[in-house]
Design a binder for these strands. Structure first.
Length: 937
RNA sequence: GCCUUGGUGGUGGAACUGGUAGACACGCAGGACUUAAAAUCCUGUCUUCAGCAACGGAGGUGCGGGUUCGAUUCCCGCCUGAGGCACCA
């Protein structure tokens, strides 16, 4: 009887399904445990081998926890709204709901083959009305709330209205800069529009204006993803920034809580650091400088400097360096730029602004070339009256701080390079700490050339300067965050409609009983007028004055983990009883690519729902495990043809092309396909003579295969389908192989080279129970101490490794165990049965089959996890490595309880040690009990 | 450019808290079984020097330094791969 994985896996998947083996109840005497996967976007390419990596890990952990006696919630669903489905619709005319449904069906089939223990009764799909009804409901909670700075909590906006009616704007501490102060009487006298405009400045979901990538030729707004090198990916049309009305989430109000509460989480330091850096809290000062602009008097030669009516406000973390400011840099978009540019500089400034317009934020930051333009205006240093030239440059971004900086070239790298490039003289305010060739950002030097601050240590000068500025009324302390409010609207079709009606420029929320606001069918997915979304093309929609934007992809994914807890609830997003019971996600597994997007938004939504009294917890994911990405290998062929052309010297022709389609699913080259292609399309004019794999001496022509590791995606043609592996080797082999590839957190290129080894392991396990010719070989004999040692060592290994998510070493632990048992010719039920339970999380099908072969009733997942007993593995002696000066020279078997003095005597007497000592006495003998011995000579 | 993270044999990786570098696999080489193949099993496999051999010497964890009795592990500098950078999900 041989290991027929195909039959076994199909059989048990059927039985588990029929018996609802993985159905989870919200009521149990057992302790709860919630294991969550980042749900997939059901793309048309289907599941690739990267998806299951995390799913297998979470499945292993879920089964492990269940064996350990927990009530385990382990659900799955689909993040089903999004751009790709819409693009597919535009290109093929298939409604996104249809293609999404198909893709989900396909995903489900692929997932089922791998034998996951999901409770499918809890499935959610973000694009279904019974789900997005609640996404819209949560949006209304956000819209109808504001962040109360006194309590630091989301509070119903009605409370704010009450406060305005009693005290006017003074009821708000730290009134937003965009609002003028008003009295209670003034508030009541305001028109509804005026009142609502003020409230909009407070709502957690609010409407404002923001820039998008606008492509005139396509008449649409593009995602950053769709813009490549400043032109549209489709068609290569120019793209520029356009200002549109947009919805936002006021995540910046939560910046401090999001930052501080990271302490509560069991996330990797790397992940916490990424979020910390993203939030980017800094403290410093805002400083206003007077501006002097030049204006012509009659003739261009008669230039006069006059004071501009508004000052230039900069944000700096280093007010201590104010005497070292040699120039100002404002972002090219800054509102002051047009007003302060001198006539002489006008052309240069305009040209520069046009150049910057076409560039993305990333390009602007990554640019090594130093660019900029002088405005012709000057700022005045408030302390010494120096005239400081004001420049514009792309490295200063409008969205951060005030969009303007004071540049201190002796202390800042970029400022220094800028000054050098444009020959701006540098003031040294840090004495010897500045050597003239490279800037020094120290805070520990003493100030020089700094007026009243001379001799003060920079670090101490920070507060002195801010105090002085505040006294003079031209500056103030300021905490700044790099994080910006989250753009929450898209000019797209395939997303949740906003439950908002516009009347006279006022946004009115729909009431709860009007939800869900269903996404209407459209005839065309093309964008509406003026960059509006496709919904703007629907007359019935526009007539009702409904919002034509839709929500972004992350709307649905910001709370899906809550819906799993109670997904059939029609009355609430999730019942309080259910959310109280399941509480936080105990273990969340997913990729680092979501570090600052999804993970931050989910935290925000959870906090808001908590503040408003809908949840008892304010952090969604207690422990986070980041799986590495399985990258795909892309193959490229470089072809070089060197030839002579008449009298001329050698000509070199070089071509590089993507060759993914000439490789099969296991990454093997399909030579015939390649050759056919080479000949028909003339990629290699002299194919017959091509030398593979490198250069030749004479270099007539050669072709070389290179592989590039990159993210798997359909467009790159490097996607591998798990079905192929499952069909060939079985789900258990696939599961264990993906784990065996390496540490779960590490990213690695997909490769099937080692899969045979894992498959062989399972066959070897099988043979402990059944011999190909003899049939059943397992027996009821009593295990020997040696066999029990193998078992208990394995129990410890698997338990330890699983607890610390070291799944690859656990697999190798199983291999060692089976190798040892085979060597010991152990076919004893008492041992094997326990090994099967250990193996269940990793290879559930074969474990289940053999479990029943041993005559057990019921599913193995309900068996008790083996109890480790230390007494079976105790050792009395240890083979100590003896190092001489740190290099191992001998081994010595010594009792484990032997102490230093005795060890030293024995070691010194050792023959090998004697040889190295050459008659001398050792300087020192280092003895680490149970570890090693090092003799220092 | 900025943030995060990785680099160990021909390959994937192991070494968990500074204590025997290369577990477990793949591949390769040789052998057994077989009419043959598949399957299975056995032996060897970091490099290099010396050697008939048991065994021995030297080097070795991206590169260059440092701390330490001892460094893949800690510190400094550099090279390089991957992910993210706000509208892909």
């Amino acid at each position: 009887m041989e290991y027929n994985f195909g039959e076994i896996e199909k059989k048990w998947q059927g039985k588990w399904n029929d018996a609802n083996a993985y159905k989870v109840s919200n009521k149990s005497d057992k302790p709860k445990y919630y294991v969550l996967d980042m749900f997939p976007y059901p793309s048309g390419a289907g599941l690739h081998v990267g998806h299951p990596l995390g799913y297998i890990a979470s499945d292993i952990f879920s089964r492990y926890k269940r064996l350990k006696g927990f009530n385990v919630l382990h659900p799955m669903g689909y993040d089903a709204f999004g751009l790709p489905a819409e693009q597919y619709a535009i290109e093929h005319g298939v409604h996104p709901a249809v293609s999404t449904e198909q893709n989900i069906g396909n995903f489900r089939k692929q997932l089922d083959k791998i034998g996951f223990c999901y409770d499918w009764d809890r499935e959610v799909r973000t694009c279904e009305t019974n789900y997005y009804k609640w996404t819209q409901w949560i949006f209304l909670q956000l819209f109808n709330s504001y962040f109360n700075p006194a309590t630091k909590k989301a509070t119903p906006i009605t409370e704010l209205v009450k406060a305005f009616e009693i005290d006017g704007s003074i009821s708000i501490d730290g009134l937003r800069a965009t609002i003028k102060s008003f009295t209670a009487a003034e508030w009541k006298a305001y028109s509804e529009k005026e009142q609502q405009d003020i409230l909009m400045e407070f709502r957690l979901a609010f409407c404002g204006h923001g820039e998008v990538n606008w492509c005139e030729a396509l008449g649409t707004v593009l995602a950053n993803d769709e813009v490549v090198n400043g032109v549209s990916e489709r068609g290569g049309h120019p793209v520029e920034k356009k200002r549109l009305r947009q919805w936002y989430l006021r995540i910046t109000d939560y910046a401090d809580r999001l930052l501080n509460d990271l302490n509560k989480l069991e996330w990797s330091d790397a992940m916490k650091e990424m979020q910390t850096n993203w939030i980017g809290k800094s403290s410093g000062a805002e400083i206003s400088f007077k501006i002097q602009v030049s204006s012509y008097n009659d003739t261009p030669s008669n230039v006069e400097l006059t004071t501009h009516n508004s000052p230039l406000t900069v944000y700096t973390t280093r007010p201590d360096t104010i005497f070292g400011v040699d120039f100002m840099v404002v972002s090219p978009e800054h509102e002051l730029v047009t007003g302060i540019t001198s006539a002489a500089q006008q052309k240069e400034v305009e040209d520069y602004i046009n150049y910057v317009k076409s560039r993305s934020e990333r390009e602007r930051q990554a640019e090594k070339k130093i660019t900029g333009a002088f405005t012709g205006a000057f700022a005045i240093n408030p302390f010494d009256g120096r005239e400081i030239p004001i420049w514009i440059s792309e490295y200063v971004l409008a969205g951060y701080g005030t969009g303007a900086i004071m540049a201190v070239p002796c202390g800042d790298e970029r400022d220094f390079k800028f000054a050098n490039h444009f020959n701006i003289p540098i003031t040294n305010i840090i004495g010897d700490a500045f050597n003239g060739t490279e800037p020094n950002a120290t805070k520990d030097a003493k100030l020089t050339n700094s007026g009243f601050l001379n001799g003060v240590v920079l670090r101490d000068a920070i507060d002195i300067v801010i105090d002085k500025l505040e006294e003079m009324g031209i500056g103030k302390r300021k905490i700044n965050y790099r994080m910006r409010d989250a753009a929450f609207s898209r000019q797209r079709y395939w997303g949740e409609p906003f439950p908002i009606v516009w009347k006279n420029g006022i946004a009115y929320p729909l009431s709860e009983n009007e939800l869900p606001l269903e996404l209407p069918k459209v005839d065309s997915y093309s964008p509406g007028p003026e960059g509006e979304g496709p919904l703007a093309n629907i007359d019935s929609w526009v007539e009702k004055n409904l919002e034509t934007n839709t929500m972004p992809g992350y709307a649905g994914s910001s709370w899906y983990f809550l819906r799993y807890m109670d997904n059939h609830n029609d009355a609430e997003f999730a019942g309080r009883e259910a959310t109280d019971y399941w509480n936080q996600v105990d273990l969340y597994i997913g990729g680092t690519e979501h570090a600052v997007g999804h993970l931050l938004y989910s935290r925000l939504w959870t906090k808001v729902l908590h503040d408003l009294g809908h949840l008892s917890f304010d952090e969604p994911f207690k422990k986070l495990l980041n799986q590495g990405m399985i990258t795909g290998k892309s193959y490229f062929i470089t072809y070089v043809h060197v030839y002579s052309n008449g009298d001329k010297a050698r000509m070199i022709e070089k071509r590089i092309f993507n060759a993914n389609k000439y490789f099969d699913s296991q990454g093997r080259i399909v030579r015939s396909a390649l050759e056919r292609y080479a000949k028909t399309e003339e990629h290699f004019p002299l194919m017959d003579n091509v030398i593979w794999g490198g250069k030749t001496e004479s270099g007539e022509q050669y072709a070389e295969l290179i592989d590039i590791v990159e993210k798997m995606s359909k467009s790159k043609g490097n996607v591998f389908n798990p079905d192929d592996i499952v069909n060939e080797f079985g789900a258990d082999t696939f599961r264990m192989y993906e784990m065996f590839l390496g540490p779960i957190e590490q990213s690695k290129p997909w490769d099937t080279k080692g899969i045979e080894g894992v498959h062989r392991f399972l066959k070897k396990l099988w043979r402990l129970f059944y011999d190909d010719s003899k049939g059943k070989v397992w027996n009821e004999e009593v295990p020997t101490p040696a066999e029990l040692k193998i078992l208990h060592r394995t129990i410890k290994k698997i338990e330890d490794d699983t607890e610390r998510f070291s799944f690859n070493t656990a697999v190798s632990g199983f291999m060692v165990c089976v190798n040892d048992l085979a060597d010991a010719k152990c076919h004893k039920r008492a041992i094997l049965e326990q090994v099967l339970i250990l193996l269940t999380p990793y290879a559930p099908h074969i474990a289940e089959e053999l479990w029943h072969s041993l005559g057990n009733e019921g599913f193995i997942i309900d068996a008790p996890f083996p109890q480790f007993e230390g007494k079976y593995i105790v050792e009395s002696t240890k083979e100590y490595p003896i190092s001489i000066n740190g290099k191992v020279r001998a081994n010595l078997n010594l009792p484990l309880d032997m102490e230093q003095a005795e060890v030293e005597t024995i070691v010194t007497a050792n023959e090998t040690v004697q040889k190295w000592l050459e008659g001398k006495a050792p300087k020192k003998i280092i003895f680490v009990k149970g570890r090693m011995i090092n003799v220092v000579i």
